[in-house]
Write a protein that binds this DNA or RNA. Sequence first.
DNA 1: TGTACATCAGTGAACGCGCGTTCACTGATGTAC
DNA 2: TGTACATCAGTGAACGCGCGTTCACTGATGTAC
Lengths: 223, 223
Amino acid sequence: MQTASISERSVELVEKNRPQQQRAIKTYEAILSATGELLREVGLERISTNIIAERAGVTVPALYRYFPNKYAVLNALGSRLLGARKAVFEHWQEGRLSGHGPYAMLESLNELLMGVYRVTRDFPGGVELLHGMQAMAPLQKVQQEHDWMVARTFAGIWADLNRVQCTEELVCKSRVAVALGFSSIQVALEDPDMSPDVALYEGAHALRSYLEHGMMKGPHGVN
Amino acid sequence: MQTASISERSVELVEKNRPQQQRAIKTYEAILSATGELLREVGLERISTNIIAERAGVTVPALYRYFPNKYAVLNALGSRLLGARKAVFEHWQEGRLSGHGPYAMLESLNELLMGVYRVTRDFPGGVELLHGMQAMAPLQKVQQEHDWMVARTFAGIWADLNRVQCTEELVCKSRVAVALGFSSIQVALEDPDMSPDVALYEGAHALRSYLEHGMMKGPHGVN
DNA sequence: TGTACATCAGTGAACGCGCGTTCACTGATGTAC
DNA sequence: TGTACATCAGTGAACGCGCGTTCACTGATGTAC
């Protein structure tokens, strides 16, 4: 039953024809842009291949030339968003760890959270895409794989910094840390009664506390 | 434009006729049960008034007797889930803070997270409902109000414990703390590559670290 | 206790609509000789 | 350079389907006298 329902939910996400000629690329991009705009305007619930094609200024079969279905479009756009988030993370990883002093870590984490926040906020339909990747079964894996990748990188950094080995266990802890960070970003993005700056700053505080006092404790923090 | 799209998205959630007679209550409950089952089986994407009524063993107009639309059904079920979560929280609040020793706080937080995790996991369609309340515009406020309520209570507890005043700022910090806790629960519920126990235990660790080292620092942690 | 009536509860059938998707086709672009 | 051909790109029109919702109606339950 469980298995059956899972297989029922599975959907082809692989794109069909890649655009080759210039006008094809233009069409392809117009479809993704339209998708982003419409996600913002009408939300996940009402997005459809019909309105996407209309907004992009092409006919529906043109969309189906490149994408096998609606989810593949969201997947393509979602992957771009995750790529943009990943780029922020990698940029931070390269340059932002050089600070010193008692607040260097805090400021560094705050900048990271702020960077990911901004890139998501400014990405058309970014918030809705994240929801879609969390809520729509066919897209869940994309998001999870991204989170684990960030967690692995993060665990590597932390292991280097503390001169310990990067174990499987450390990666798991990082996975949780990543979830914590993202959740403060989500609050910043979505809760109208919360100042984004405060949410992110407190998120950075929490992360630092966890990194300095919680994560270093023995196997799953038992000792 | 922004305003227009928001108003376009708004939907009536207030239930119409409350069931009075016994068979009416049975129908009403059958609708909610069916909704929970189907959320689990087919997911948010495919839920519809048609299949809910069919599964509940009633006709569609019977559903519309009690609910103005699909979102009102999800809202009713979602409110029950949040109520169940709230009950766990209140139960914890009353009894679980009496422990002592260096790990009392950690264990207590872990039990809280575990309790909320379990009640959500065992609630039919619980995970999908949470997604729905986050992703579907008409339902977002329900979830946010719940989170703020938990945050206010939590801030009160913390203020008592530390013999300080419960300020607006403290509530904001608690709001972030609540988001962190929920995010570890979400990882436990949804990431197949993560042991739920580990996710929750690390979540408890992170929360404790934040509560003990991060949250007490001055205005938004600046000092 | 019986009966008439009011209210509550649920049905059968139908509606218009937009959805996802596909078909056979025309037109545009690139390439070989 | 011209032309014939292959491939790429996009169109117009249509499909069956399930969606949300409503109508006028029948049947069940409760209540007043």
